[in-house]
């Protein structure tokens, strides 16, 4: 597969994304240089596209991904992979707030930490974080898994729906309506199957799995204790 190099610099983002689409359609691997942490790079890329960003990217990198494999050398800004449905995104460093927001499929792998609300309102797919997930991560996640090897920040898994937050590290504090449960061996095997292709499987980990307490699912306005949860 030949390589196509795209310079970002001060060029118009629409023009850059169009060049990415054309190079992907031609079956070329794409290397993006001089990224300057700019926003909206690599949006809506198709199945089979392969991109490597040198340096860092800004907001919404890899948003609406429909199957591309995207790697960012260093950090990325807010809303990485928002709304993605398929594919892989790998971040070499830190991912800002709302990483994987509303994603419905695919895998995001962050080698550093994430900012607040990682996986907010996600509806599927997996987010693997080697470091720690930030404040209120997993907020209202409807489905999918957030797997944080290094621990979780405050108010973790607040108002979770049917999503799952897993960690092998410390939890600073739990959000509302969250239960921490011991996962079954089958569930751990499922998580290991996600980590294995990333080279992160370690059977010695002691997992904790956070799921919804389901009290907010059936909120009863006349129940004073339910109000106190919020």
């Amino acid at each position: 597969m030949s390589e196509h190099v795209i310079e970002v610099g001060k060029r118009h983002i629409k023009e850059i994304n169009e060049e990415m689409q054309e190079a992907a359609a031609a079956g070329k691997k794409i290397r993006v240089v001089n990224t300057l942490s700019r926003h909206n790079l690599g949006i809506g890329l198709p199945d089979g596209a392969e991109l490597y960003f040198e340096g860092s990217t800004g907001y919404f990198c890899g948003g609406l991904n429909t199957g591309a494999t995207i790697e960012v050398e260093r950090n990325t800004g807010w809303a990485l992979g928002e709304g993605m449905s398929k594919g892989y995104i790998t971040i070499g460093g830190y991912a800002g707030m709302s990483c994987g927001a509303a994603m419905i499929g695919g895998t995001i792998h962050v080698k550093g930490d994430t900012g607040p609300r990682c996986g907010v309102a996600m509806k599927g797919g997996n987010i693997v974080v080697e470091g720690k997930i930030g404040y209120q991560s997993g907020f209202m996640a409807h489905s999918g898994k957030i797997i944080a090897l290094g621990g979780a920040g405050e108010s973790c898994a607040d108002a979770l729906w049917q999503g799952e937050v897993w960690t092998a590290g410390p939890i600073d504090s739990l959000g509302v309506d969250v239960e921490v449960i011991e996962p079954t061996a089958e569930e751990v095997a499922e998580v290991d199957a996600i980590l294995d292709p990333l080279g992160l499987k370690d059977t010695s980990r002691e997992w904790r799995k956070m799921v919804s307490g389901q009290r907010l699912w059936y909120f009863e306005s006349r129940d004073a204790s339910a109000w106190l949860m919020i």
């Binding site: 942490s37 340096g55 860092s56 260093r74 950090n75 830190y94 800002g96 707030m97 900012g115 607040p116 930030g134 404040y135 920040g153 405050e154």
Partner: peptide, 11 residues
């Protein structure tokens, strides 16, 4: 130049 950034993203 590419250099370390500090993200003050937390509360």
């Amino acid at each position: 130049d590419e250099c370390d950034v500090i993200n003050h993203d937390g509360p």
